[in-house]
């Protein structure tokens, strides 16, 4: 066999190995999610564990979510006004700000922020626990690490995400109001009334909440799995943290496309 053939063969072999590796990890991740859900009964009975994690993932993310929500809303107000006033319909600014925040930006941007603020922290924490053999020590003491460490962090993420997304949207609308009404001088009455006339509670707001709930499951799942699965070395933990942010960002954006296609097909 020539050198060329050997090269080709090894390239193909590497490709195949990467594909089977990914499939293997996906299968393991699904089994891991199932185990997490199965052991959640025990966790929910000792709810203070989850509350402690909600403090670390949710409450400590408040500042970044509120501040970025305010600024996103303010930018939407400026940009939206600039475009809308060309068509003489600057009163529709309220609709533009509210719909884009409630439907898309609120759930998606807060989930991206959540993945990088809280998801990476969860991965690093669980990864370090694994590297310092705390998880094995728990197993030695007949404490199930999935019920004690993984499930509370998973549920804390799932609970925090919709709350953070709702706060992001509310804050963004307030930012749009500040810029649009207070700074630029769009009529306050038409800003709110046009918004109320075209934002539907079930179609827009509830669908946004459902989206953020799905993103919460995705981000928390990826974060706890990457932490649990990481190589127990310093390098392994850092790699797992990076993978959490990259994978969950991609998962959020692709899931957002699928959910949007399902929800808003335009009657």
């Amino acid at each position: 066999m020539s050198v060329f053939h050997t090269n080709l063969l090894s390239t193909l072999r590497n490709l195949g190995k990467r594909v089977t590796d990914r499939l293997w990890r996906l299968g393991f991740a699904s089994r891991f999610l199932l185990a997490t859900l199965l052991y959640s009964g025990m966790t929910l009975k000792r709810f203070h564990l989850t509350i402690r994690e909600i403090y670390f993932t949710g409450v400590l993310s408040l500042i970044i979510i509120l501040v970025s929500g305010l600024f996103v809303g303010m930018v939407l107000g400026l940009q939206g006004y600039d475009t809308l006033q060309r068509y003489g319909s600057s009163e529709a600014l309220g609709i533009l700000v509210a719909l884009s925040l409630v439907r898309e930006l609120g759930p998606v941007v807060s989930a991206l922020l959540f993945a990088s603020r809280a998801g990476s922290a969860i991965t690093a924490e669980i990864g370090l626990m694994k590297a310092t053999e705390q998880l094995s020590a728990m197993e030695m003491m007949a404490v199930n690490p999935i019920a004690r460490v993984v499930a509370p962090r998973f549920w804390a993420g799932v609970i925090s995400m919709p709350i953070l997304a709702a706060l992001f949207s509310a804050m963004g609308i307030f930012g749009g109001y500040l810029v649009g009404v207070q700074l630029i001088g769009v009529d306050e009455g038409s800003f709110w009334s046009q918004m109320q006339a075209s934002v539907d509670f079930r179609e827009d707001i509830l669908n946004g909440v459902i989206k953020s709930f799905v993103f919460g499951i995705l981000v928390s799942w990826i974060a706890v799995f990457e932490g649990y699965d990481c190589e127990p070395t310093a390098e392994g933990v850092s790699g797992a943290t990076t993978r959490t942010v990259v994978t969950s960002s991609l998962a959020i954006l692709s899931a957002d496309f699928v959910l949007t296609a399902l929800m808003f097909r335009g009657v």
Binding site: A166, I173, F201, D204
Partner: peptide, 18 residues
């Protein structure tokens, strides 16, 4: 945290939505 989350949802429902 949960209380202000619910409050913002209420704000979205009543003030933003119809």
């Amino acid at each position: 945290f949960v209380a202000i989350g619910l409050a913002s949802l209420l704000f979205l429902a009543l003030k933003v939505g119809n």
